[in-house]
């Protein structure tokens, strides 16, 4: 039999996954942005037939930061990747979340590279996109997201589903405020036209933050 105080002390560090997940998410986002930057510098160098001193230094700094982010992600990786015991269903649900993150990363990188080819900047640019790339990315989103969501929902436990559900409800409320307010202010010429991806990012961020918060509180 274990002493309760020892048990509590041992598990205090594991109790809150919020900071850990937030750290991994932030570093992952920075990592993807840096990979996009490196791709851009390399493509520009290929077009110009060489790399300037400034470009070379920026590239080295970016690669160092990528290594730093990767190290941080490994250090902060969620406990389920460190080999703690877990049921098969919990493991499947966690890996679906990892797969969703990987899918987002691949789509982001694809859009970055495709955008650079058209002299567009950034993953969320509204610029023109090759029809082939658009169809491939849309197919990936339309097919994989419902499949992964269904599989996750079939395997996640009730606590995880509640945290996700709470996040989704609050995100829906945020959307129901942002979308009509922006539409009205745009009609009054007070703000620029509505950006679908900005609204999407806001809503999805609220969902994710509330989800993590509910898991930790």
């Amino acid at each position: 039999m274990t002493n309760l105080t020892d048990l509590e002390a041992r598990e205090t560090e594991q109790a809150s996954p919020f900071r850990r997940w937030l750290g991994v998410g932030t570093l992952g986002f920075i990592l993807i942005a840096l990979l996009g930057f490196v791709t851009g510098v390399l493509m520009s160098a290929a077009e110009k037939g060489g790399l300037s001193m400034r470009g070379g230094m920026l590239l080295m700094v970016a690669i160092a930061l990528i290594a730093l982010c990767a190290w941080g992600i490994v250090r902060l990786r969620p406990a389920f990747l460190t080999g703690e015991p877990q049921s098969a269903k919990t493991r499947r649900a966690n890996w679906v979340l990892v797969a969703c993150g990987a899918l987002g990363g691949v789509i982001g990188l694809t859009l970055s590279i495709a955008g650079l080819a058209n002299d567009e900047n950034g993953v969320f640019s509204n610029g023109s996109l090759s029809p082939t790339v658009a169809v491939i990315v849309v197919a990936a989103i339309a097919l994989l997201v419902p499949l992964l969501s269904f599989y996750w929902y079939a395997n996640a436990d009730e606590f995880e589903k509640r945290a996700s559900g709470d996040g989704a409800i609050i995100a829906m409320y945020v959307y129901s405020i942002i979308a009509p307010c922006w539409w009205l202010l745009e009609r009054a010429a007070l703000i620029p036209p509505q950006e679908p991806m900005t609204v999407y990012l806001l809503v999805i961020s609220v969902w994710g933050i509330v989800w993590l918060y509910r898991k930790a509180n």
């Binding site: 039999m1 309760l4 594991q14 703690e84 877990q86 919990t90 995880e160």
Partner: peptide, 25 residues
């Protein structure tokens, strides 16, 4: 759980829920 010397993760595995779920309960 302490009487059985189980960690939260071990109990979660036996109940088919995550460690976080055990902690929250």
């Amino acid at each position: 759980r302490a009487e059985r010397d189980w960690s939260q993760a071990e109990l979660g595995m036996r109940l088919d829920v995550s460690r976080q779920a055990v902690n929250a309960i």
